[in-house]
Design a protein around this nucleic acid. Sequence first.
DNA 1: GCGCGTATCCACCGACCGGTGGATACCGCA
DNA 2: TGCGGTATCCACCGGTCGGTGGATACGCGC
Lengths: 207, 207
Amino acid sequence: MIRILVADDHPIVRAGLVALLEAESDLEVIGTATTGVEAVEIALAERPDVVLMDLRMPELDGDAATAEIRAVAPEVKVVILTTYESDDAILAGVEAGASGYLLKAAPEQELLAGVRAVAAGEVALAPRVAAMLVTRVSRPATPPVALSPRELEVLRLVADGLSNRAIGERLFVGESTVKTHLLHVFTKLEVTDRTRAVTRAMELGIL
Amino acid sequence: MIRILVADDHPIVRAGLVALLEAESDLEVIGTATTGVEAVEIALAERPDVVLMDLRMPELDGDAATAEIRAVAPEVKVVILTTYESDDAILAGVEAGASGYLLKAAPEQELLAGVRAVAAGEVALAPRVAAMLVTRVSRPATPPVALSPRELEVLRLVADGLSNRAIGERLFVGESTVKTHLLHVFTKLEVTDRTRAVTRAMELGIL
DNA sequence: GCGCGTATCCACCGACCGGTGGATACCGCA
DNA sequence: TGCGGTATCCACCGGTCGGTGGATACGCGC
């Protein structure tokens, strides 16, 4: 039996979800919450298998509630359930630790399958969310910049927090040489300091 | 009609895939490749809608071939198709720009659905791959460190490449003050320089 | 061979950063 | 009311970084 907590501030939606879930023999709604704070309280007290969480809720939004639950009770899985949100909002939900992200517009069977998948330790993603995750991790097609092997080597050590002197010692060259490589990196990445160079390189996926 | 290129160094697998795909009325295999280099050549010459790409191939592995194709012809979608690989290998495929990642063990219908989804501009992910993407972007449950609002503000500006002086001006405080905040950040993140602080903060998901 | 570009190396200067030491103010708790 | 913890602020020193200028070597095309 999969124990479920339903968190949504719309009574209609709550009722619909509860009816849908209770009709299944292997699913059991152990509680409902109307705010983010309430969702966290019940989740921590009852430790359901799955929390069906709306993103927009009073007091504490779904992201924050998800993060709080996961911080204390990581074994409680959270499925974000929403009508439609911006890319950032969706990614925030996943980053907060949600194991699933479904749209309310999804067919009922898909929703039930999602809940069961998450309870089984898998993930449930709406196609749109999956596409966003892929683009998030995929590197830009053509690296707009080409660092020389030596420059890349130096930049990696800079990212590890080594000083120019320390980098020089590790590469058996003078400190000045390291600086020169770094300056070339700055030019190619169009930045003026080592810190921004590292973040730029990460944005460009070359680190 | 969806035009497909099959790239795999095993003749048996190639034959099986071609037979499966050609049996569908809306799918058409326009060529086969046995090495990564060959796959890139044919993909760029024929511009198929979808490339079914094995990860392990002679001369050029699937990741590299995918990246090359995507760099020149981003409209050609690539589906990585493999038996089983390590987490790193799978993520590398997605990072290289693959739109799909399926397992050869998947049911035939799932494979066909994946090809059609990718051709339609969506993504096709095996459950295992989806789970990996989620854990990749999700932040650690409990942020092991808690920066003060001011410290976080300063660190963000540091990540943008601003000097301490420039940060001070933007926040209407002295340069020394900025340094103090930064030193507190260093202590909390257990680092000794601004660059490593930024990378650590990114690792910890607090930036 | 000769020129051109690139990668790799180094020294010197001024400005900036990392570290120490200390001040003030707020908050919760006894 | 006092007391400890935290957040916020600042000045001064020595080491480091960012920038300029220049050297050597390799590959490539004519």
